[in-house]
Amino acid sequence: MKKNSKVSDAIAGVKRGDIASVSRALTLAADGRQEADELLKAFFKDLGRAQKIGLCGPPGVGKSSLSSRLISLYRKRNLKVGMLAVDPSSPISGGSFLGDRLRIQEHISDTGVFIRSIASRGMVGGLSNTIFSQIHVLEAYGCDKILIETVGIGQDEVAIARAADTVVYVTTPQLGDEIQAMKAGVMEIGDLFVVNKADLEGRDKAVSDIRSALGLGLAAPRVWEPPVSAVSARDGLGLELLLADLDRHEKYLKETPEGRRRLKNQCREELSLYVSRRLYRDFLSKVSEKDIEDLVDHKINLVDLASEILK
């Protein structure tokens, strides 16, 4: 009973725009227990109201610094911005060092910006298992833009393509040549490509390497041609152009079937994550130590045991 009132307080608070409630709701959402179901139910009508911008790319390319710059530009337009910054959890201790805020200090006193650090808690692919629930909290809070910064793991962090509307792949002039840009994985999911640290040598080469890799072997012209831009988050160069590209992509999603296709993919992914969590919570918790002993002692086979559990 007490727990329920805690959850309904948080729900009401989020809708009122109360920061402490948003924070509390994000924790409930992250923990993904039964009590978070009420949040999901209450907030599902806000689904799709914000542009969700995913930032991915290897560690150290400046995703956080770039996010900070984008937040400033959106704030100039008086838009409410939420940010979810994911860093890895230790597979050994379960602990995590969340350091993305360090690069995003300037917005701390701005009430139009809400930043939350998230530990990946065992999920591979650059996000956390309950990221969708947390996105819904920020949408219900009224954010116009939600930046999602993934774990910087490099070539295979494609989960972001199933959670964000617009995926920005960030790299630098000094990370690999054209061959790297031709590889499968992240290079296929970018809607926008950004060469950050454009103050460093090799900027033009990096931009043209990515451009040519994107254009190789295309069977038919694309409706959306991913723009490649050079920016410097440190010096503030090229950011207005990047912002214009982000706006253009949002418009493209609104005006073509691609927008709806992506929303459907997001729903599909969220449903699948939710059902796995429920299976885990409702069924795997029923597995006893004795069941495992029985497996080891050949007293029951795995298929029969699983069928029993799933009944």
């Binding site: 201790s93 602990g95 995590s96 060092f97 350091g99 805020r101 200090q105 650090s117 530990a119």
Partner: peptide
């Protein structure tokens, strides 16, 4: 971190 906490460090 090594003891299993989620630690936010702001510099």
């Amino acid at each position: 971190r090594d003891a299993g906490f989620e630690v936010i460090y702001t510099g």
